[in-house]
Design a protein around this nucleic acid. Structure first.
Length: 505
RNA sequence: GGUAUCGUGGCCGAGUGGCUAGGCAGAGGUCUGCAAAACCUCGUACAGCGGUUCGACUCCGCUCGAUACCUCCA
């Protein structure tokens, strides 16, 4: 595994070799959710994408500090209520404290991310807990001369910035185009330039989320939190900054400008952006109202869903597409993912049984020959590493895993044979990639208590006896009854196996 | 209009200048008391039109189409 990890850097628009600033340490910052609504499928994408990145970096023995923020202040409602904080609005409607709302949805977010087997980041800082850092950051921008204050609000001076640096380098935009193509919005008159963005906003009287600052009682602009918290926890220069493609402009663009202005240099070496989840070809998003929440997926309680889908089905579905491609949701696609995942885990169970049965001794006595080492196995393992090294290409990893599935099943059917060493290599490879790197887990096996296992062993023994007596009536009755209890019995050459039907039980 | 990404077989989705992606669905077969599962075989896809090339789905141009973003909206 001497090949290096390459990742696509949005800033350069090409794949670059990953070379951490201070190996073996890696600093990674990912834009987290704004906690004013239930997490939906669109939230799962970046969470799982960067969970994959985290897991693979950890697998490569990097020590990763992973920061994912919680935005609980600052996002303004775009449509109806101009200038009102999103969280504040929701709070007023529901007669709750703003922080109560933020806490509620943050908790929901954690629960669903846990269900998706997304590892918790090292630190999950909240914007509301870092007002001081944000104010300090704004001060630095003002000191450097790239901001200006108007009526208690502070704005970033994009025009002045553009004289020395390039505002638009990340998103490929040109400031002049931005100026000429800006649509007219209310409340923009304070800005010198339509392309300028707020660093600090003075709160209107009805605005209940507010903090004191040198300029006014108000709240920070949207982009400043990531600049401030990134610098706070990862330093002025760190390795990876991730987020959804929809954040590329203006959020990340502005973050670069803020850091350049305040610190005198940029902060991020590699910018990574995951693509969107679409539904009927359209971005799934809060603003379009076409989102399906994770809760609804897990329960099947959305009219657009023909059934419930388990967390691992969702995770597998997302990993089957490369993170930079759009991923179109459909029931058909999710059902395909569910079945594929089931096949994958069925093969892993078969592999375990093969190893239990043949721990490597006595094979020759039992009449087995010792097959030569199978060259396909190291090749498949290497292909998995190559895929991961090539910008985290999880779909290729999965394709290779299915090649292994086919080999496992062939061995299980006695159509091929593998040495015990090869079986172990196979097991190690499969488990490394499935469990550790892709972060999948077998949801079916969770229900296999020792109690249930013992009971099933007895039932299948009785059925086996009746089968040997060709008492098909009894044997089929047992199978049919078990089927009604959601337990499927499959007769194989080495006896019968059983599984609980449906990943949701 | 600008910027970016993309258009692959029934569906989802990789990838490459000439060599099988993979999953699901479908067809045929093997195995099995039946069933299920598994295994084998199969469809010869790459928006359209030009160009470069010995050869392009893969490179270039154009056309058509889709999606995202365009100031405080994941």
């Amino acid at each position: 595994m001497e090949s290096s990890l390459f990742l696509y850097n949005t800033l350069s628009r090409r794949k670059e070799k990953f070379e951490p600033l201070n190996p073996p340490f890696v600093g990674m910052y990912v834009c987290g959710p704004t906690v004013y609504g239930d997490p939906h499928l669109g939230h799962a994408r970046p969470a799982i994408t960067f969970d994959l990145v985290l897991r693979y970096l950890q697998h490569l023995d990097y020590k990763v500090r992973y920061i994912r923020n919680i935005t609980d202040v600052g996002h303004l409602e775009h449509d109806l209520d101009e200038g009102e904080d999103k969280i504040a609005k929701k709070a007023r409607l529901e007669q709750l404290e703003p922080m109560e709302v933020a806490q509620y949805y943050a908790d929901r977010y954690f629960v669903f991310m846990d269900a998706l087997n997304v590892k918790r980041p090292s630190i999950e800082p909240r914007a509301s807990g870092h007002i001081i850092e944000q104010i300090e950051f704004i001060k630095k921008i003002l000191e450097a001369g790239f901001g200006y204050e108007v009526n208690g609000s502070v704005y970033f001076d994009t025009e002045k910035y553009s004289r020395e640096y390039t505002y638009g380098k990340l998103s490929g935009r040109v400031l002049e185009d931005l100026l000429s193509n800006t649509r007219e919005l209310e409340g923009q008159d304070e800005k010198r330039n339509p392309a300028d963005f707020a660093l600090w906003k003075k709160a209107q009287p009805e605005h209940i989320m507010r903090w004191p600052s040198p300029w006014s009682d108000g709240f920070p602009g949207w982009h400043i939190e990531c600049s401030a918290m990134g610098a706070r926890y990862l330093g002025e220069y760190f390795d990876i900054h991730g987020g959804g493609m929809d954040l590329l402009f203006p959020h990340h663009e502005s973050e670069i400008a803020q850091n350049q202005a305040a610190l005198g240099h940029e902060s991020v070496k590699y910018w990574m952006h995951n693509n969107m989840v679409t539904i009927n070809g359209q971005k799934m998003g809060k603003s379009l109202g076409n989102f399906i929440t994770l809760d609804e997926f897990f329960n099947g309680s959305h009219p657009g869903l023909t059934q419930a889908y388990s967390p691992m089905t969702i995770r597998f579905f997302i990993l089957q597409a490369h993170y930079k491609s759009t991923l179109d949701f459909s029931n058909e696609a999710l059902q395909a993912a569910e079945k594929g995942l089931k096949r994958l885990f069925a093969a892993i169970e078969s592999l375990d049984k093969l190893l239990d049965r043949d721990p490597g001794s006595g094979m020759q006595d039992a009449g087995f020959h010792y097959p030569a080492p199978d060259s396909r196995l190291p090749a498949l393992r290497d292909a998995c590493y190559e895929a991961m090294n090539d910008d985290f290409n999880s779909p290729i990893v999965i394709a290779n895993l299915f090649e292994m599935v086919r080999i496992i099943n062939s061995v299980n059917d006695k159509k091929e044979s593998l040495s015990a060493d090869d079986l172990k290599l196979l097991k190690q490879t499969v488990e490394t990639f499935v469990y550790e790197i892709l972060g999948l887990k077998n949801e079916l096996s969770g229900d296999n208590s020792e109690y249930l296992k013992g009971l099933m062993e007895l039932v299948l023994k009785i059925r086996q006896d009746s089968r040997e007596k060709k008492d098909w009536g009894t044997s089929d009755q047992i199978r049919d009854t078990l089927q009604k209890l959601q337990i499927t019995v499959k007769d194989g050459k080495e006896g019968s196996i059983w599984e609980l039907k449906g990943i949701n039980g």
